[in-house]
Nucleic acid binder design. Structure first.
Length: 574
RNA sequence: GGCCCCGUGGCUCAGUUGGUUAGAGCGUUGGCCUGUCACGCCAAAGGUCGCGGGUUCAAGUCCCGUCGGGGUCGCCA
């Protein structure tokens, strides 16, 4: 139907007879015998000169044939890629009429997201989402190429699998053939990809859809897409290198230049310096160690604390009481008992509600240690090390963090995660930080039983601009070690067999050492596309409620469907 | 489940201390216009102020509840 795309026409096409297809973007009428019609397809817009645009309306679907010519002197539009030319002697064929769109399809107005989602097919017609979908496709393609180049084999894994109730809440699918039983949709292909290692696939990857029935956020959807991979006979750096290669290729495909190699930072360093296991390295404001300074202090809140740290907020010394109170509330929300603020005055004097409890020496030492200058604000927290770090890290993000999409892109690998986080309140056993198949750090193996909370694991996260892009680990491939970890977690051999038997038994048949990674494609694409929200890089996302305003999903099932599945509904809650 | 923000023609918004008949721009419809490009000009249509209740002589405005959207904490091994 068409000979060219709208967006590709240039002065070199002058004189050619062309046929274009697309939508009427805008029309400008000048009386009976002259009108301009902007025709748009996914590549761009071309101005067509017609003698009568009376029967054309916005978003009508048209096929236009005509001759490309230079625009008249003084009528060139430099805001348009095709602005030097126009189509003359046009024949316009209306392929379909269109109702006026419920919202403008230009880029100038920020339309309410509920309206956009209800008419997503129109929202997708706009250049922002067209561009984002193209970026997404290019990222996918670059990643596939990088994986293939590195010898990975793409394998598809089942969507219908047994429920494994650990971790995120699963979506359940009732079985028709076995009424009363259910499949679960995968939170990730975790179990299958490890079995592929037992199977000798050696290098597996998949751009896989994963599903988690948890509350939606700016960076979370029920369904999300993950670059999933697993490798045999590798150490941690091999996995990191393979993932880095794919991510950096993807970044290069979008931005045109390849980022530096991705640095590594230990989890402990990240917590200690940035107060987060996903530190945003685009801005400084590192936490300052102050514990030693206050050894033997007379200030009760500091005297008993295991860790005291400070955050220097440059130039915010004029923050009002209301804002400071709000920060204090935030600190408490983050788990602190309180927040000490100090305004730095000329000459290094500190103004704070607690100065009267602190000695001159201590006050001066705080200024020295933080490097504070007049006009700065200092925030101090004293608590257990982990709490102190986390609270100040939260405040650091709050006062200093730019939108995630705002460059530059700062990638970082976080390594040496702790094996366990916290203790289960009911059973008293440690809780795994990653999953129970994560390999303990070899240097800490002998302390697994004696000092579990101090044991590191071979788990790692990839972080970009403060967003966790993905995580992975080396796995346990020896049944004996797996047994040790299970017993630490309070899982008996019988229970392990019941819950993970189909997964663990194969490991007796010669499981190779292996490890892998899973990376959120939606997040990577969003950041590369300059979006703060993954919904902007997903063709048909869901709002926070999880109910799709366009399709009406989820819908009720009729009695016949339910009967076939052996299900009966409970009466609605009152 | 908690907290915060938002909801006024199709879209984006204004609406004062609670006070007459709720406004604007864009869009839509009709008319005019031969070089515009966010064209311009004239005119018209279009409103359950999300919904329900309450306070009041009087509610878009205040209060309670509810629904929808967004952000965030919990949750996301």
């Amino acid at each position: 139907m068409r000979t060219h795309w709208c967006g590709e026409l240039r002065t070199e096409h002058v004189g050619e007879e062309v046929a274009l297809c697309g939508w009427v973007s805008r029309r400008r009428e000048h009386g009976e015998h002259l009108a301009f019609v902007d025709v748009r397809d996914r590549t761009g817009i071309v101005q067509c000169v017609v003698d009568n645009a009376h029967d054309l309306r916005s978003e009508f679907v048209v096929r236009v044939s005509g001759t490309v010519r230079h625009r008249l002197e003084g009528t060139v539009n430099d805001k348009l890629a095709t602005g030097e030319i126009e189509l003359q002697d046009c024949t316009v064929e209306v392929l379909n009429r269109a109702d006026p769109p419920p919202f403008p399809l230009d880029e100038r107005t920020d339309v309410d997201e509920a309206v956009r989602l209800r008419h997503r097919y129109l929202d997708l017609r706009r250049s922002r989402l067209q561009r984002n979908l193209e970026i997404r496709a290019r990222v996918n393609s670059a990643i596939r190429a990088a994986m293939e180049r590195q010898g990975f084999t793409e394998v598809e894994t089942p969507l219908l699998m047994p429920s494994t109730p650990e971790g995120a809440r699963e979506f359940l699918v009732p079985s028709r053939q076995v009424p009363g039983s259910f499949y679960a949709l995968p939170q990730s292909p975790q179990l299958f990809k490890q079995l592929l290692m037992v199977a000798g696939t050696e290098r597996y990857y998949q751009i896989a859809r994963c599903l988690r029935d948890e509350d939606l956020r700016a960076d979370r959807q029920f369904e999300f897409t993950q670059l999933d991979l697993e490798m045999s006979f590798v150490d941690q750096d091999d996995v990191l290198a393979a993932v880095s290669e794919a991510v950096l290729d993807a970044a290069e495909a979008i931005t045109g230049h390849r980022p530096d190699d991705i640095p590594q930072m230990t989890w402990h360093d990240a917590m200690d310096r940035y107060g987060s296991d996903k530190p945003d390295l685009r801005f400084g404001m590192e936490l300052q160690e102050l514990t030693e300074l206050f050894a033997g202090t007379g200030f009760q809140a500091f005297a008993s604390a295991a860790a005291i740290k400070g955050l220097r907020v440059p130039g915010q010394g004029d923050l009002g009481r209301k804002k400071l109170d709000a920060l204090t509330d935030d600190a408490k929300q983050l788990g602190a008992k309180g927040l000490v603020w100090m305004r730095v005055r000329e000459g290094g004097d500190l103004e704070s509600p607690v100065t009267k409890f602190l000695s001159e020496t201590e006050l001066k030492a705080v200024v020295d240690a933080t490097g504070a200058e007049a006009g700065d604000l200092l925030l101090l927290v004293a608590d257990e090390w982990h709490t102190t770090c986390e609270v100040l890290g939260g405040l650091r993000n709050q006062v200093g963090r730019p939108p995630v999409s705002q460059g530059p892109f700062r990638y970082v690998w976080i390594v040496d995660f702790p094996m366990f986080v916290g203790v289960d309140a009911t059973t008293g056993t440690p809780k795994p930080a990653h999953h129970p198949f994560t390999r303990p750090h070899p240097d800490d193996l002998d302390r697994l039983e004696s000092d579990p909370m101090d044991v590191r694991s071979k788990a790692y996260d990839l972080v970009l601009n403060g967003w966790e892009l993905g995580s992975g680990s080396l796995r346990i491939h020896e049944p004996e070690l797996q047994q040790r970890v299970f017993s630490l977690l309070g899982i008996s051999p019988e229970e392990a067999d019941r819950r993970f038997g189909f997964f663990l038994n194969p490991f007796r048949f010669g499981a190779p050492p292996h490890g892998g990674f899973g990376m959120g494609m939606d997040r990577l694409v969003a950041i590369l596309a300059g979006e703060d929200n993954i919904r902007e890089v997903i063709a048909f996302p869901k709002p926070q409620s999880g109910a799709d305003p366009m399709t009406g999903a989820p819908t009720t099932a009729d009695d016949k469907q339910l009967a076939e599945l052996g299900l009966r509904l409970l009466p609605p809650k009152a």
